[in-house]
C-alpha cells in the first residue's frame, strides 16, 4: 500500500509538534525562564520569547527523533541496493 507524501511528512512534523508543545508546557510550568537564563545570558529576552525559543528547541529535538525513527524503518533490502548492482 503506497504511503502518501503528506502522511510521511506529517508522521515526522506532527507528533513532534504535539510532544514539543507538551514538553514546553511542563517545562515552563516548573522553570521560570527569568530564573533560568534571562539575567545572565539574555537580559532583553521577554518571557514570551523564551517560551517560543524553548518550544522550537523542543520541536527540533522531537522532530529529529521522529526523523531518525523513519530513517531506521527503511527495510534492510533497500539499503542493500547499491549503485551498480542489479535492480530487483
Amino acid at each position: 500500500m503506497p504511503t502518501p507524501l503528506t502522511q510521511r511528512i506529517t508522521a515526522v512534523l506532527w507528533p513532534s509538534f504535539l510532544m514539543a508543545g507538551l514538553a514546553t508546557v511542563v517545562f515552563f510550568a516548573v522553570f521560570d525562564p527569568y530564573d533560568l537564563v534571562a539575567p545572565t545570558w539574555f537580559p532583553n529576552l521577554s518571557r514570551l520569547g523564551a517560551y517560543s525559543i524553548g518550544f522550537f528547541l523542543f520541536w527540533l529535538l522531537t522532530a529529529s527523533s521522529c526523523l531518525l525513527t523513519c530513517y531506521f524503518q527503511r527495510p534492510v533490502n533497500r539499503v542493500n541496493r547499491l549503485p551498480g548492482r542489479d535492480k530487483e
Partner: peptide, 9 residues
C-alpha cells in the same frame, strides 16, 4: 518508486 509509493491526493 516515489511515484508508486506516494499516491497523489
Amino acid at each position: 518508486i516515489e511515484t508508486q509509493l506516494y499516491a497523489k491526493r
